[in-house]
Amino acid sequence: MQKFLTGLFFLTLFGLSSSNLLAQESEQLKQQYKRPLEIPFPVNAPYSPQLATLGKMLFFDPRLSGNKDLNCASCHNPSFGYEVPIKTPIGTTKTPLDRQAPTLLNIAWVTSLFWDGRALTLEKQAEGPITAKVEMAGKFDIIIERLEEISEYEKWFKKLFPQKGIAKDTILTAIATYERTIVSEWAPFDRWVEGDEAALSPAQKRGFEVFNGPGKCASCHTGWLFADNQFHDIGLSTTDIGRGKIEPNNVFAQHGFKTPTLRELTHRAPYMHNGSLTTLQDVIELYNSGGIKRISRSPLITPLNLSKQQKSDLIAFLKSLTAERNNVTMPILPN
């Protein structure tokens, strides 16, 4: 009896201290998700409002595509988290592409571009879809010709690039500069991190615990960006080897794709690099199962055995990463 009481006492003591520890950990965890207040710009492409404006105009200008039928926003639509609401985007040839359009949200913090990370700069990335034959099918000499005919473009290129004027790299720099200004708005989660306890519902808060704990989501979706700029095979059924193309000798690069941000997730369905999962429930179920067991699969991916409650809490939490409003204005294009 005495032993039992002593045991109970120590158990209570331990419980108290452990709950205290948990609270501290939770606070530390929150700090890891603090948003940056500044957008980094590369030394060779400093920000200027005029350059960003020019980039935005070019981003929305269909004259950059071969048939003047597509612009960057055709596949990176601001209304859908700079993605498209279909499985994979359809290019100028009217055939679906192999991969879903990656979001441009918080792209300034993304170190390698494309799903497989084959481009290291935004400028380099932008060149791809513009010139790809199944996408915009643009040709830079023709694009430059077209833009030179538009006096306002000519004037602004001259102003911003007195030596180069309208050129391939100046066009790409402008677009990249605009893209770097695309930052996801403050979501309820951000306000919670800043200390507004009421910003999240109890379910969402529990979901955050699942996200960081049994869900293991935070293993790859790290920090405020909810992305680690790394490539992982998550066990998704696909013939696409992804990063394996860039790193053929790296076992773990096979079927590996860049971790995407989870910001504005609710606007960005369907999900995964190939748009194969239409709902968040599907995504959670995939991770819960651990997906296809293959050699390339990330060691971080294991069956989770999440409870129904944990799953729904997790989804509730993920929804807290979407901002209430998103003000994106369309530019008036020069003629």
Binding site: L37, I39, F41, P46, Y47
Partner: peptide, 17 residues
């Protein structure tokens, strides 16, 4: 001043800031 391009900076404030 940074956002208006009046002061050069490699870190421009986010809209939130």
């Amino acid at each position: 001043e940074i956002l208006l391009g009046l002061k050069p900076s490699f870190f421009i404030p986010t809209m939130e800031k």
